[in-house]
Computed example of a mutant assay.
Amino acid sequence: MAEPVLTETRIRAGVWEGILRAEPGGPSPEVEVRHLDARIEGAMLASVPDRPGHWALRVPIPAQALSDGVQTFVIRSTASDATLGHFTIVTGADRGDDLRAEVDLLRAELDMLKRAFRRHCLETL
Protein backbone atom coordinates (compact mmCIF):
# COMPACT_ATOMS: atom_id res chain seq x y z
CA MET A 1 0.00 0.00 0.00
CA ALA A 2 1.35 3.43 -0.94
CA GLU A 3 1.93 6.11 1.66
CA PRO A 4 -0.75 8.78 1.95
CA VAL A 5 0.07 12.11 0.28
CA LEU A 6 -0.27 15.27 2.34
CA THR A 7 -1.04 18.69 0.86
CA GLU A 8 -1.03 21.85 2.97
CA THR A 9 -4.05 24.07 2.47
CA ARG A 10 -3.66 26.91 5.00
CA ILE A 11 -3.00 28.13 8.51
CA ARG A 12 -5.94 29.98 9.99
CA ALA A 13 -6.71 31.09 13.55
CA GLY A 14 -3.81 29.08 14.96
CA VAL A 15 -4.78 25.84 13.19
CA TRP A 16 -2.74 24.25 10.40
CA GLU A 17 -4.93 22.54 7.80
CA GLY A 18 -4.15 20.04 5.07
CA ILE A 19 -5.63 17.27 2.94
CA LEU A 20 -4.36 13.72 3.23
CA ARG A 21 -5.01 11.48 0.22
CA ALA A 22 -5.00 7.73 0.89
CA GLU A 23 -6.31 4.67 -0.91
CA PRO A 24 -10.09 4.88 -1.28
CA GLY A 25 -11.82 2.20 0.73
CA GLY A 26 -8.70 1.56 2.80
CA PRO A 27 -8.38 2.01 6.53
CA SER A 28 -8.40 5.50 7.96
CA PRO A 29 -4.85 6.90 8.12
CA GLU A 30 -3.28 7.40 11.52
CA VAL A 31 -0.95 10.35 11.96
CA GLU A 32 0.97 12.10 14.68
CA VAL A 33 2.47 15.57 14.78
CA ARG A 34 5.76 16.22 16.56
CA HIS A 35 7.55 19.41 17.55
CA LEU A 36 10.98 19.31 19.23
CA ASP A 37 10.56 15.54 19.58
CA ALA A 38 7.34 15.98 21.58
CA ARG A 39 3.95 14.85 20.35
CA ILE A 40 1.45 17.63 19.64
CA GLU A 41 -1.98 16.68 20.95
CA GLY A 42 -5.28 17.60 19.36
CA ALA A 43 -4.66 16.74 15.69
CA MET A 44 -7.99 15.91 14.08
CA LEU A 45 -8.49 13.74 10.99
CA ALA A 46 -11.92 13.57 9.33
CA SER A 47 -13.04 12.07 6.02
CA VAL A 48 -13.99 14.59 3.35
CA PRO A 49 -17.60 14.08 2.20
CA ASP A 50 -18.01 13.11 -1.47
CA ARG A 51 -14.24 12.57 -1.89
CA PRO A 52 -13.32 8.93 -1.18
CA GLY A 53 -9.79 8.52 0.14
CA HIS A 54 -9.46 12.18 1.14
CA TRP A 55 -9.06 13.19 4.77
CA ALA A 56 -9.02 16.69 6.27
CA LEU A 57 -6.21 17.09 8.80
CA ARG A 58 -6.35 19.94 11.34
CA VAL A 59 -3.50 20.58 13.75
CA PRO A 60 -3.95 23.19 16.48
CA ILE A 61 -0.67 25.04 16.99
CA PRO A 62 0.00 25.26 20.74
CA ALA A 63 0.91 28.73 21.98
CA GLN A 64 3.80 27.30 24.04
CA ALA A 65 5.42 26.06 20.80
CA LEU A 66 5.70 29.60 19.44
CA SER A 67 8.86 31.49 20.32
CA ASP A 68 11.55 33.46 18.52
CA GLY A 69 13.15 31.56 15.69
CA VAL A 70 12.11 28.67 13.50
CA GLN A 71 9.64 26.07 14.74
CA THR A 72 9.15 22.94 12.61
CA PHE A 73 6.24 20.56 13.06
CA VAL A 74 6.66 17.10 11.48
CA ILE A 75 3.62 15.05 10.42
CA ARG A 76 4.19 11.29 10.43
CA SER A 77 2.24 8.14 9.72
CA THR A 78 1.98 6.09 12.90
CA ALA A 79 1.39 2.93 10.89
CA SER A 80 4.61 3.08 8.85
CA ASP A 81 6.63 5.66 10.82
CA ALA A 82 7.12 7.57 7.54
CA THR A 83 7.25 11.35 7.35
CA LEU A 84 4.24 12.62 5.40
CA GLY A 85 5.07 16.30 5.56
CA HIS A 86 5.96 19.23 7.75
CA PHE A 87 5.17 22.86 8.32
CA THR A 88 7.41 25.61 9.62
CA ILE A 89 6.61 28.77 11.53
CA VAL A 90 9.16 31.59 11.80
CA THR A 91 8.59 34.25 14.46
CA GLY A 92 10.61 37.23 15.54
CA ALA A 93 12.73 37.13 12.38
CA ASP A 94 12.55 37.89 8.66
CA ARG A 95 10.95 34.95 6.79
CA GLY A 96 13.30 35.54 3.85
CA ASP A 97 15.98 33.41 5.50
CA ASP A 98 14.80 29.87 4.59
CA LEU A 99 18.14 28.28 5.50
CA ARG A 100 17.19 28.29 9.19
CA ALA A 101 13.95 26.46 8.39
CA GLU A 102 15.89 23.83 6.43
CA VAL A 103 18.39 23.33 9.27
CA ASP A 104 15.54 23.02 11.77
CA LEU A 105 13.85 20.41 9.55
CA LEU A 106 17.12 18.49 9.29
CA ARG A 107 17.39 18.49 13.09
CA ALA A 108 13.83 17.15 13.39
CA GLU A 109 14.57 14.43 10.82
CA LEU A 110 17.81 13.51 12.63
CA ASP A 111 15.91 13.16 15.92
CA MET A 112 13.45 10.79 14.22
CA LEU A 113 16.29 8.76 12.70
CA LYS A 114 17.95 8.46 16.12
CA ARG A 115 14.69 7.19 17.64
CA ALA A 116 14.22 4.67 14.82
CA PHE A 117 17.83 3.47 15.13
CA ARG A 118 17.54 3.04 18.89
CA ARG A 119 14.26 1.14 18.47
CA HIS A 120 15.90 -1.08 15.83
CA CYS A 121 18.86 -1.81 18.14
CA LEU A 122 16.51 -2.76 20.97
CA GLU A 123 14.45 -5.04 18.71
CA THR A 124 17.48 -6.90 17.33
CA LEU A 125 18.93 -7.80 20.73
Results as ranks from 00 to 15, higher is better:
Met1Pro: 15
Pro4Tyr: 02
Pro4Ala: 08
Thr7Asp: 12
Glu8Ser: 12
Thr9Glu: 12
Gly14Lys: 08
Gly14Asp: 02
Leu20Cys: 15
Gly25Met: 02
Pro27Cys: 06
Pro29Trp: 00
Val31Thr: 09
His35Tyr: 14
Asp37Cys: 01
Arg39Phe: 03
Ile40Val: 15
Ala43Gln: 06
Ala43Leu: 00
Met44Leu: 06
Met44Pro: 01
Met44Ala: 11
Ala46Asp: 11
Ser47Met: 04
Ser47Asp: 06
Ser47Glu: 13
Val48Gln: 10
Val48Met: 00
Val48Asn: 03
Asp50Ala: 13
Gly53Thr: 02
Gly53Asp: 02
Gly53Asn: 02
Pro60Ile: 01
Ile61Thr: 04
Gly69Ser: 03
Gly69Val: 00
Val70Gly: 01
Gln71Asp: 13
Thr78His: 01
Thr78Pro: 09
Ser80Asp: 00
Asp81Lys: 03
Thr83Asp: 04
Leu84His: 05
Gly85Cys: 08
His86Val: 10
Phe87Thr: 01
Phe87Ile: 01
Phe87Gln: 07
Val90Pro: 05
Thr91Ala: 15
Gly92Val: 09
Gly92Cys: 07
Arg95Val: 12
Arg95Ala: 11
Gly96Tyr: 05
Leu99His: 11
Leu99Lys: 10
Arg100Pro: 01
Arg100Asp: 13
Asp104Cys: 08
Leu105His: 07
Leu106Thr: 09
Leu106Pro: 00
Arg107Leu: 10
Leu110Pro: 06
Met112Gly: 10
Leu113His: 10
Lys114Met: 04
Ala116Arg: 12
Cys121Arg: 10
Thr124Tyr: 04
